[in-house]
Nucleic acid binder design. Sequence first.
RNA 1: GGUUUCGUGGCCGAGUGGCUAGGCGGAGGUCUGCAAAACCUCUUACAGCGGUUCGAAUCCGCUCGAAACCUCCA
Length: 494
Amino acid sequence: MKNQQIYLYNTLKRKKELFEPINSPFVGMYVCGPTVYGDAHLGHARPAITFDLIYRYLKHLDYKVRYVRNITDVGHLEDDCDEGEDKIAKKARLEKLEPMEVVQYYTKRYHKDMEALNVLDPDIEPQASGHIIEQIEMIKEIIEKEFAYEANGSIYFDVVKYHQSHNYGKLSRRVLDDMICNTRELEGQDEKKNSVDFALWKKAMPQHIMKWNSPWSKGYPGWHIECSAMSRKYLGQHFDIHGGGIDLLFPHHECEIAQSVAANGKEAVKYWLHNNMITVNGQKMGKSLHNFITLRELFNGDHMALTKPFNPMTLRFFILQAHYRNPLDFSNEALIAAEKGLNRLFEAQQKLMKIIPSEKGKIDVNNIKEKCYKAINDDFNTPIAISHLFDAVRFINCAFDQVETLDEKQIKSLNKLLDIFVNDIFGLKVPTSYTDNNNNNMLSGLVETLLEIRKNARKQKDFKTSDYIRDKLYELNIEIKDTKDGVLWNIKKS
RNA sequence: GGUUUCGUGGCCGAGUGGCUAGGCGGAGGUCUGCAAAACCUCUUACAGCGGUUCGAAUCCGCUCGAAACCUCCA
């Protein structure tokens, strides 16, 4: 076990706390995943990457992590009234598909997008539709404990009663009395004792196509119960980390707490972690706001707001360059800036191995390493860690230009440092354009031959020929760089 | 209206009481037949007004502005 003390910001306490797993070295982590009724957009990338980083880091420290990220395929209510139709069903009706067809289609695409972002698969990815039994079971328990009541085939959580003995609002810091006063009058709430009560089970309307049998009615589970039921099944009644977007803080996570406490008699989660939103022009990117860019559009450059396609790694780096708890404003320009920065980082990594070692170097690699760990340990402060890596980049560049020196040991430890942080922890995979050069013998043989001809032409000051070769290769996406140490070439990056 | 959070240089984005993050852009330079690329150096900001303090971007108050949640959302 690598000895690092992590301090993470627990939303429940609103402060940073030392991370102490309940049952070290085992760590249980649950993150709210996507509702698969459409393609993943930039907003989905943030929690995926944020918690992927945490997952990677914990594994790097040799914790035995079980990472659970759900797929919501039951759908949530479109409205808070009886006419609400769940999202999956609505989509299915519009597209004349089986609901599970919609689910499978978008789940597959989500996985592809995540793979492109180099997001590791969770250890368990449970689907809500596959855990109806567990959800019904948990609802039964809540009814037994008398924190829920039946009304016309639907089951509601009795928030007011729960609050008499517990604290509803402890996570979101909301005051129940205020909420009761401030809630707008909505139709179809007559079944509820109080407007703040939320559904655990909803009786289905005849036109509703996703429904299951239950002791109370043919219907479907409420909005929040799947996470409580599935986290309990796979991580137990008490687990370490629960993550998700800050927009889920209320009511979703607040309700999860209430459900777990009601059913289990105790709280389930030790550390609540929330990532902030991605904004466009300062406004949240969201489905209902119609200002979202899907990941596919980003990767293909197929959107009005984009001037070009972007490599998935660029988005990953862009997200890691901001702290996960702060809003991050998206723009084409900001992404281009991130792309250039990332290329500099990758190029330094490649250059490092070409540096001729000196007798004695002048860099304290260990110091940089310590600073990087310190930054990550401080609530996963990736932007600070990245800034330290850029200090190393500058030194590597100087050494490459023979302004500074590195000895063999330093080169090795720098290489390891970059490998650990850039590749393992940050999950930034070097695009193939950097590494393919030597993997394709025929291509590199051809290019080397042409460059040889060009070299001779230049020697004889036949610049017409040399420029012709350069321009033709450029048209074929091969870039040539004349440096004082010879000619470098690479396949152009996106 | 309620709850919460935030306002940092041309842009993005760290930083929670003294030690001028980092990236992009810009300026100058190095290299080069030219070009491109690359590299080096430079580029002292914290919404406004008060207060606390020897000292505040950082703490407190007020004003202005913005966002998230309160309804599905990552």
